[in-house]
Write a protein that binds this DNA or RNA. Structure first.
Length: 285
DNA sequence: AGATCGCCCTGCTTGC
DNA sequence: TGCAAGCAGGGCGATC
């Protein structure tokens, strides 16, 4: 459930607490956490040892730590329940601690990857000339990226034969949007989640993009969305945006615009929340 | 070839 | 009380 704002909060924490430190030793406690590192856990820890960490970057829900002088990066995806925590050495191991990284300096902290559901993981990859790990070259720029091309996004939408929420969650079209921020942006834009992408005019696409950015920036400003202790920053602190959600998780509660009860509909083995009055299904053409 | 579906995984909640 | 089903759901490989 960490989406762009939550991952960016984590990235900022890593920039502050982990950048420019040198790895003394990495330890993999659960092999599944490094399954995307095809050469295996031993290779992963061997390659990290002695490397100095550069400034962390992010694209969509992926973040990575460049290893200086190697042309490689440690790629991280939090999946559903992943956390990157900066903890004192003396802190008791978390129940779902998967990877630990210790550093050579005298600071009292280590980096820990903790993940209950193990959908997330860490892996090491070559960087492309643009400086991003090669395995995420297919991930589109995210809406907070200054180089995101609004017009190209609109044209890509029009090329697709699908519905708008599927498109928003398609990380090769626009990255960083998950179920929560898709529902929130659609509510703000008064667009039904099943509106066909071929009905999108340029102004409608722009309106939606503007709302995606607004809701993500608003969430970022308060540390992201946390429903429970699973979604936290590197210091284990929760964000506050759950209080500001207008659609997601608000089944039967009144729409904050018109008072109509928010509805939840099963959708792609998950849920879509929407206001049946503000967000009308377009008439079939 | 593009769109869709099923699976991975654990813990909390719900219902019988 | 106990157990099973339901739910949370991003990404990827298989399939249509």
């Amino acid at each position: 459930m960490p989406e762009l704002p939550e991952v960016e909060v984590v990235r900022r924490g890593l920039e502050r607490w982990v950048a420019h430190r040198t790895v003394a030793e990495a330890e993999v406690l659960h092999p599944r956490a490094v399954r995307r590192h095809v050469a295996g856990a031993e290779d992963f820890t061997h390659r990290l040892k002695g490397r100095r960490v550069g400034v962390p970057s992010r694209r969509g829900k992926y973040l990575w730590l460049p290893l200086e002088g190697t042309g490689q990066s440690v790629l991280a995806h939090l999946g559903m329940s992943g956390q990157l925590l900066v903890q004192p050495h003396t802190a008791v191991d978390e129940k779902h601690l998967r990877v630990r990284v210790r550093f050579t300096d005298a600071l009292d902290t280590e980096l820990r990857f903790v993940d209950q559901r193990t959908f997330g993981g860490l892996s090491l990859h070559e960087n492309t000339p643009e400086g991003l790990p090669d395995v995420i070259a297919h991930i589109a720029r995210d809406p907070l990226d200054p180089l995101f091309d609004d017009d190209a996004f609109h044209r890509a939408l029009r090329r697709k034969r699908t519905t708008i929420k599927r498109a928003l969650l398609d990380q090769s079209l626009i990255s960083g949007v998950g179920n929560i921020y898709a529902d929130e942006a659609l509510w703000r834009a008064r667009i039904h989640y099943e509106r066909p992408t071929e009905t999108f005019t340029r102004p409608r696409s722009q309106l939606l993009l503007d709302h995606v950015r607004d809701v993500m920036n608003a969430a970022l400003a308060v540390g992201g969305t946390s429903f429970d202790s699973l979604y936290v920053d590197v210091n284990g602190e929760s964000g506050y945006f759950d209080r500001s959600l207008d659609a997601y998780g608000r089944e039967d509660l009144p729409c904050r615009r018109c008072g109509t009860p928010i509805r939840r509909r099963p959708w792609m083995n998950r849920s879509s929340y929407f206001c049946p009055r503000c967000q009308r299904v377009p008439r079939a053409s």
